[in-house]
Design a protein around this nucleic acid. Structure first.
Length: 116
DNA sequence: AATTTGACGCGGT
DNA sequence: CACCGCGCCAAAT
């Protein structure tokens, strides 16, 4: 818990289940910084330079919109990545967002929690 | 060391 | 419905 706010975001993002999505705010809140969703976005930005599998494309804003798609190196990339996981995107918005939404505080498993 | 910025969230106008 | 501003806090310049 030292420092890296980033690492925490990485950890959570890394554990987002396949075909599920979460929001910046949810992650921020889980990190104990409700309202600091920006930090999550900022951290995710560093994620692209981070080695390893961090499914940043599974993180969308609270409306389920792919707001960060322009940071994926390709505007359609994020969309395709999600659709390839079974997440349907329409007009930059995740369909059935409520259903696919993964709340870390609610669905994070023990082992994942420990890995955090 | 100070200022700007940012992939958000939410209420207000 | 569109636009505005504030809060939140760390990293980058």
């Amino acid at each position: 818990m030292t420092t890296n706010f980033f690492d925490r975001v990485y950890a959570i993002t890394r554990h987002i289940p396949y075909g599920r999505v979460t929001s910046y705010g949810a992650i921020a809140k889980y990190l104990g910084a409700p309202g600091s969703a920006r930090m999550v976005g900022w951290a995710l930005n560093a994620t692209k330079s981070h080695p390893g599998s961090i499914h940043a494309h599974r993180v969308v804003n609270r409306q389920g919109m792919l707001t960060g798609k322009n940071h994926f190196g390709g505007l359609e990339m994020m969309c395709e990545l999600l659709e390839s996981e079974g997440v349907k995107i329409k007009n930059d918005r995740v369909q059935d967002f409520e259903t696919l939404f993964w709340d870390p505080a609610r669905e994070l498993t023990i082992e994942e929690f420990l890995a955090l």
